[in-house]
């Protein structure tokens, strides 16, 4: 398998988020609308919200994995996330952690298709873990410090708080 095949394999995956965060995500995202601005500061699209949540999760160094019993929603295919540079940066951060979730890059070079498939599934599970930890963090803020979302700098402020 070559690099572009691996990219395609990852790219066709749809990371999931927990159903319990759907309202929050809808509240802070503006699906298909990048012009308007409501009462609260919001992102332009769902996948931006998702990427933001992953970064929050990574900064928290915390994961909130989806349990088998939990209701989830599929997300936009990974290959369609943009900007691609940020998507790749996230991928890079996950690859940096690959040994932590049991995959040495060098071993992947010699692994069979099944093993590669297992790696990609785990990679996406890891992404989901960070994203849902990020959503959990945002949900707490939303519930307890809602006024903070009236500040246009809210999402920058959260990043700074975690720096």
């Amino acid at each position: 398998m070559d690099g572009s095949q691996l990219r395609d394999l990852i790219g066709q995956k749809r990371p999931r988020y927990k159903e319990q965060y759907r309202t929050l995500i809808e509240s802070i995202s503006k699906k298909g609308d990048s012009s308007g601005k409501g009462d609260f500061s919001s992102f332009g699209a769902f996948y931006q919200t998702y990427m933001y949540a992953i970064v929050i999760g990574i900064k928290l160094d915390k994961q909130n994995f989806i349990q088998a019993s939990e209701k989830t929603n599929d997300f936009f295919v990974f290959s369609q996330w943009s900007p691609t540079s940020i998507r790749d940066y996230i991928l890079m951060m996950l690859l940096n952690k690959s040994e932590d979730f049991g995959f040495k890059l060098v071993e992947l070079e010699n692994a069979g298709t099944e093993a590669i498939e297992a790696f990609v599934i785990e990679l996406i599970r890891q992404i989901e873990g960070y994203a849902n930890a990020g959503f959990e963090y945002l949900q707490t803020k939303w519930d307890n410090e809602n006024m903070k979302f009236r500040n246009p700098f809210v999402f920058v402020n959260f990043l700074e708080e975690l720096s």
């Binding site: 919001s42 931006q48 940066y89 951060m93």
Partner: peptide, 26 residues
């Protein structure tokens, strides 16, 4: 309004603030 597009800017995305070590690590 531009703040959120700055978070996802192509060239200097604010979302990656403080994460520069990752590049070296990679």
């Amino acid at each position: 309004k531009n703040i959120n597009s700055m978070l996802f800017s192509e060239y200097s995305p604010w979302i990656l603030m403080g994460l520069q070590d990752q590049i070296m690590l990679f």
